[in-house]
Structure formats: structure tokens, C-alpha cells
Design a protein around this nucleic acid. Structure first.
Length: 511
DNA sequence: ATAGGGTTAG
């Protein structure tokens, strides 16, 4: 790059930059090559007297590649105002920027048609991708149906649209129908399942992909790791980590963070830390992921330390980071520290607290027994409390045995339609522990009348690399009788051990 | 005369 700058000063002196072709080559190098320097390219672009369509296209492309869609679109509008006609290249970049600017999307499509580019491969795929991303599936499907030269990208773009709009079956149907599948189309379906919360399907497909002989790429690996994280599938996750190492895949920000998160969510916090240490570049995602993992492993002190380290390394925290840090403070009972962080979140970083931050703060105050403050905060916060905020308040009522405030809180949950069964169970347990049995009966009766159902609890474990899911009340598992016998055995054993203790009540209530 | 599209983390 420094050589290019030298060369460029020479060219300016010799007036060669007046040659638009030479200028185009230099801008292209500065804007989109491997070690590009976009701000330099942009300065150069602004200084040019004579621009070409190629130069406009290149600078627009550079901003799109950095996800600076607003800038890309405003450059595109400037281009039109300067009298340049966009060509197929222009549209292939601009349509990508339009995925976050739907108002410009329709106008761009209109111009595509007017200039006769609609049936041109790259442009048509760009349009399908655009409509699919905006979840405008009728439009996307229509274009797909009229396309005569469908390739694997056309199919993948449409598939992604069904994923975006949550239509898992259509997406899978399309995937099965594709005449050709490559690593990207497999990844799209795998991460599609992940986005739709269908983690077991994602893992199954990751497995099928390897059986089909295709090597998973970066995105496929990341998708599979995310699924492992949600499923707690540690053995699968470890296998993928070994695959990453064996194939010398670079621990970049995305892959590194996915690994850190997988280990943290699967209970291996030390492995999460060591992968984090290996990552050459750590951004806000990586830090936040580990801070969250530490907080969830009752290592809030380390979480808060990491938060300090992050800032000393100049990584700017975002709203999610603050949610994790505040919840760490709350678990450690660091009331003053939590309040201080809550305040400087907006003062120093300009992040306005959202409902989730208030939720953490209510939890922080409530756990510390500062009821009045917690209740006051809920009443005075600038937005409607959500189920998390009221749940935190309810939990603090339970912890400190304040049945009256608990009852009020449940009422406000009911008013807002946020009363899932667990809330009523909690209230009834609170009445029970304060020996108000008539109220227990009343709550239970109301639950019956309103047909409130508790969402069945479920758990997942991995045995010999196979995932087993257990749902409360479902006795239909293979080997269920053996499982029940073993549990009863453990139960009896515990009773025997605790025989002298009057208060022991080791009955199994559900399995 | 220089170029381009689909999948990726908290």
C-alpha cells in the first residue's frame, strides 16, 4: 500500500491520474484488494475530475463489501445524478446494499427493468436474493419461476428466503429438489435450520453433508457449532474443533467465537477460555461471548475482569455486553458496581438502556433485598416491563417472602398476558411456604379454570455421541423402565442415607 | 482495456 501511495504521488505529478483508466486501476487496488485502504481510495475518488462507470462501480462495491449500505446507496444516487447509467455490475453491488433499504429496492428493480438487465444472470440472482432477504417471497418466487438459467446460486438465494420467513418445510423441499448442491448451499440449509431453532435437524444435515463427500466450509462449521451449543452436544463440538485444527482452518473472529460459545454453553468454561486466548483478533463478539460464559458459570469476578480488559484493549462494548456484565454483577450481589456500570453505559458509550438492561437492574436490586428500589424502578422505567423484568421482581419476592408484592406482580403479568404456567406455580409455592393454604387452593383453581398449562420442562444429554431428549410427563422412551428403576434405587439410597433427618423429603415428583 | 452473485458468532 505504501508503494501504491508513492506511485500515486508520482502519477499525480505527471498528470497521469487524469487518465481515467489508470485512475480506475489504482482505485480498484486501494478499495477492494487484499490489503485495501478504503478511506484512501475514497479520498482519491473524491479528488478525481473524470470518473468512469467502472470507478463508480468499484467505490460502491467497496462500501457494500464493508456493509456500509447507506453510503453505498447514497453514492449510487450521486452516480445517477451525475448522469451515469448503471450497468449489470452496478446492479450486482447495489442490489446487495438494498437488502437493508427496501425503499430503494423497488426503485432499483424498476431501473433494472428499464435498462433491460432483468434477465441477466447476476442481476436476476441479485433480485431474487434481495426479495428473499426482505421476505417478499411471492416476488422472489415469481422471478425464480421465470429464470431460464437457474444455477446453484439462484436456488440457494430462494432457499434462504424461505429460511428468513421461517418456512422450514418449503426450504427443505427446495434443498432436496436442487439439481446441484455445493458447500454453500449445504451451509445455507444448515444455518437455516439453526436460525429457525431446529438444531437437531441442523446436526443431522451436517452429518449428511459429510456422508455426501463434501467438505464442510467455514459457514457450515459455524452453523454446526451453534447447533452444538444450543443442544449441549459437547462430543460433537469437540469433534468439530478437532476437524478445524486438523484442516488448519484459521481461528478468525466468527469461527473462534462460535467455538468459545460452544464450549461455554456445553459447560467447558476452561476450554472456552483457552480457545479465546488462541484467537489472534478478538472483537466485541468474542469478548461478549466469553463474558457471558463466565457469568453463567458462576465466575462473575472473572467476567467483570474480562470486561475491564476488553476496554483497556480498546474494544468497544455494545448493548449485549452490558446485559452480560450487569447480570454478572447481579449474581455477585455487586449493587454499587452494577448501578455504576448501568449509568456509564449511556454516559460513556452512548447506549440507551433497553428493557433487558432494566431487567438486569431489577434483578440486581431484588436479589440484594432492595425491594422498594426494585419496585420503584419497575414503575418508573421508561418502557413497559416485559416478562423478564416482572419475573425478576417476582423472583425477588419469592426469595424474600413478600407474598403481597408477589401477588401484585403476578397480576401485572396477567394484565399483560405474560403469565405462563410457571408464574402461577411460583405464586402458589410462595403462598405454600407462608402457610396460606387457602390461597394456594385459590391459585390452583384459577389455573385450572384458565386452562393455564406449565410448559413441560425438558433436558438434553449426550450419551456416546447420541443426543437424548427428555420431556416431563413423557414416558415413551426406550429403556424408560430401566431409567425409572435406577432413579427409584437412587431415591431409596438417599432416603437411607438421610434416615435420621426429619425434614428430608426425597420423593420423585416427575420423570 | 480493468470487475460481480448465494451461506458465518454474542
Amino acid at each position: 500500500m505504501s508503494q501504491i501511495k508513492q506511485m500515486q504521488s508520482h502519477l499525480i505529478v505527471s498528470a497521469t491520474l487524469l487518465d481515467p483508466y489508470a485512475a480506475g486501476r489504482i482505485i480498484s487496488f486501494c478499495a477492494v484488494s487484499a490489503d485495501a485502504d478504503l478511506s484512501h481510495a475514497y479520498k482519491l475518488f473524491l479528488s478525481l475530475q473524470h470518473r468512469t462507470t467502472f470507478i463508480w462501480n468499484t467505490i460502491i462495491r467497496a462500501f457494500v463489501e464493508r456493509n456500509a449500505n447507506a453510503t453505498a446507496i447514497s453514492l449510487y444516487k450521486n452516480m445517477l445524478q451525475s448522469g451515469f447509467l448503471p450497468n449489470n455490475y452496478t446492479f450486482s453491488f447495489v442490489l446487495r446494499a438494498c437488502t437493508t433499504y427496501s425503499s430503494t429496492a423497488l426503485a432499483s428493480h424498476a431501473l433494472v427493468i428499464k435498462l433491460g438487465w432483468e434477465s441477466y444472470d447476476f442481476v436476476l440472482n441479485g433480485l431474487i436474493h434481495l426479495y428473499a432477504n426482505l421476505s417478499l417471497m411471492d416476488a422472489a418466487r415469481k422471478l425464480f419461476n421465470v429464470s431460464t438459467n437457474r444455477d446453484v446460486i439462484t436456488w440457494t438465494s430462494l432457499l434462504n428466503g424461505y429460511v428468513q420467513s421461517g418456512q422450514a418445510e418449503f426450504a427443505r423441499e427446495l434443498f432436496d429438489q436442487m439439481p446441484e448442491r455445493n458447500a454453500v448451499s449445504w451451509s445455507a440449509m444448515i444455518t437455516g435450520y439453526v436460525q429457525m431453532g431446529m438444531f437437531r435437524e441442523a446436526m443431522g444435515l451436517f452429518n449428511d453433508m459429510q456422508l455426501s463427500g463434501l467438505r464442510p466450509n467455514h459457514a457450515g462449521i459455524v452453523g454446526a457449532l451453534t447447533a452444538c451449543a444450543f443442544l449441549g452436544a459437547l462430543d460433537h463440538g469437540r469433534w468439530i474443533h478437532a476437524y478445524v485444527d486438523r484442516n488448519g482452518m484459521e481461528l478468525d473472529r466468527v469461527l473462534g467465537t462460535a467455538l468459545v460459545d460452544m464450549y461455554a454453553k456445553c459447560g467447558c468454561i476452561e476450554m472456552a477460555c483457552s480457545v479465546f486466548d488462541e484467537m489472534p483478533y478478538k472483537d466485541v463478539f468474542a469478548f461478549t461471548s466469553l463474558i457471558s460464559g463466565l457469568a453463567n458459570h458462576d465466575q462473575s469476578a472473572r467476567a467483570i475482569e474480562l470486561f475491564a480488559r476488553m476496554q483497556s484493549e480498546g474494544v468497544v462494548p455494545n448493548e449485549v455486553t452490558f446485559i452480560c456484565v450487569l447480570s454478572a454483577c447481579s449474581r455477585m450481589g455487586l449493587v454499587d458496581e452494577g448501578l455504576r456500570i448501568f449509568n456509564y453505559m449511556s454516559k460513556v458509550y452512548g447506549i440507551e438502556p433497553g428493557v433487558q438492561h432494566y431487567g438486569c437492574l431489577v434483578d440486581l436490586l431484588g436479589r440484594a433485598g432492595l425491594f422498594e428500589e426494585a419496585n420503584k424502578l419497575v414503575r418508573e422505567m421508561p418502557m413497559e416491563p416485559d416478562s423478564y423484568v416482572l419475573g425478576a421482581l417476582l423472583n425477588s419476592c419469592r426469595m424474600h417472602g413478600d407474598v403481597e408484592l408477589g401477588k401484585e406482580t403476578v397480576e401485572s403479568l396477567v394484565e399483560r398476558g405474560l403469565d405462563h404456567g410457571g408464574v402461577h406455580v411460583l405464586l402458589s409455592n410462595m403462598y405454600a411456604s407462608s402457610n396460606q393454604w387457602d390461597w394456594v387452593v385459590k391459585v390452583r383453581k384459577e389455573m385450572g379454570e384458565k386452562k393455564v398449562r406449565k410448559v413441560p420442562g425438558c433436558s438434553l444429554i449426550e450419551i456416546d455421541g447420541r443426543l437424548c431428549e427428555f420431556i416431563v410427563g413423557d414416558g415413551s422412551y426406550l429403556l424408560m423402565e430401566e431409567v425409572v428403576l435406577i432413579l427409584l434405587g437412587i431415591d431409596n439410597h438417599l432416603k437411607f442415607l438421610w434416615l435420621d433427618d426429619d425434614n428430608t423429603n426425597c420423593t420423585m415428583t416427575s420423570y
